[in-house]
Design a protein around this nucleic acid. Structure first.
Lengths: 248, 248
DNA sequence: CGTGAGCTTGAGACCCATCAATGTGAGTGG
DNA sequence: CCACTCACATTGATGGGTCTCAAGCTCACG
């Protein structure tokens, strides 16, 4: 039933680019059981500690994953955009180890865990493609560990702005290094392990230096090369280098 | 050919506990093509930026993954012990996004990428089990993002000591909350995003408070409950809760 | 015993957090 | 169309946690 939401095609294209899928695979993905629901901004898709029952694919909008420390501080561990699965891992783990919340209003396709389990057992290429997708997720987590662990505030913020720019462009959601940042400065701060006050100062500084300009939530990268250097950014970890990997 | 190194059994048992394997699956894993080599401490198993050719399974000893920032700072992003794959993701990605180095002398089984690709395509249960293994890796990365992003130094160090204790016990490499920490304080610092000087002070403080005691590289957790609280530690993210997940 | 890597400790500096106040713009209701 | 409100952004002043620099210590090993 290829009357699936158009974003399904986007998701399939991304998977296919890193791990080739046959036409039959693509059709199987298109017709996987799911239900679509519109979800308001700030809604929880997954809650830390609860056993998951379905897997959410973002059809539009943004979401983020986060954890809360015992002190009550929040750390955002990833940001997700249209075409991405936000909690694929939950299909195979007993209990969720973090929460997922929408950043904006979003259209979400909920796929029953069972459907994911079945399609991946009966179709090894789909399993591999989804696996690779989670491996790229991992790579981004590793880079974030480095970002919050070893970079100073200016570098950290510049780095994440570079990452968002490339990921949004790869997803067809931005171009010319200009995009709507769907988060408040406080959320940005929680993603880079700083306070919103300090993020504000850093953004101002990056603006004064002519690396970026801002208008409300819109970010324009005025000088990609310099922002890239300022952010110690190397896009290798995004694994956008789609050289058609695998012969099997 | 079940004349494989005994640690293969350990690895298989761990995989099986989170994602059930048939006897045939286990035999296939035991007889996967590989070559064993003894590697000295400090040797590189993988180098950032290079295309990987094989996948390393640690049979004995310890290894860690790390990245170097443009400033030359090192961030260790994970620690691995006997029975773990250190770079499974490399079998499916074009280029390595980080380096892997041994912490101690180690026996390593090198499995050709091609063998991993083949066994996972022809055997969906093995693919799933390895996938789940990488998902647990991801969960640990997420926790590390939180650790370096939002916890103060004392909490950070206490947290990682708790994590090591549980992981080593689960691997049968420690018991009674006592273990040999296979890293220098500088390496520990690079894992928690601090300096070795500060890690040293924190370790002393934890000792003075009676939470741990140290003798050379040996760590004894004197008061698990209090260290757990000090480290804001909840073992959920380790996904050691082996309730035999899946019917298919 | 000499050597070197790693551990330990102190003093001072600095980056970022905290606290606090004000500014701004979108939405709401009168 | 104008108060009013509320979330978010912005800015300043101050303090603290961690880094940096530097020196001495310990212990395994030759």
């Amino acid at each position: 039933m290829p009357d699936a939401h158009p974003t399904f095609g986007k998701m399939i294209k991304r998977l296919d680019s890193r791990s080739p899928l046959s036409e039959a695979d693509k059709l199987a993905l298109l017709s996987v059981q799911h239900s679509v629901r519109k979800v308001p901004a700030g809604a929880h898709l997954v809650r830390d500690g609860e056993p998951p029952e379905q897997c959410a694919l973002l059809l539009s909008g943004y979401a983020y994953r986060y954890k809360i420390t015992g002190e009550g501080a929040r750390q955002i561990v990833s940001l997700h955009m249209a075409g991405e699965f936000v909690d694929l891992q939950n299909s195979f783990l007993q209990v969720s180890d973090h929460s997922v919340q929408t950043l904006t209003e979003a259209d979400v396709a909920f796929v029953p865990m069972q459907a994911i389990r079945e399609i991946t057992l009966s179709n090894p290429s789909i399993a591999r493609a989804l696996w690779v997708d989670t491996l790229v997720d991992s790579s981004i987590f590793r880079e974030w560990v480095v970002n919050v662990g070893r970079r100073d505030s200016r570098t950290r913020v510049a780095h994440i702005l570079c990452e968002f720019s490339l990921r949004l462009e790869a997803a067809g959601l931005a171009k010319d290094h200009r995009y709507e940042l769907p988060m408040t400065q406080e959320q940005l701060a929680d993603a880079v392990g700083l306070t919103s006050v300090h993020v504000n100062r850093v953004l101002r500084q990056l603006g004064e230096e002519g690396l970026i300009s801002r208008d409300r939530r819109s970010i324009t990268i005025e000088d990609w090369q310099r922002l890239r250097e300022a952010g110690d950014f190397n896009e290798r970890y995004l694994h956008h280098d789609f050289v058609a990997a695998a012969r099997n």
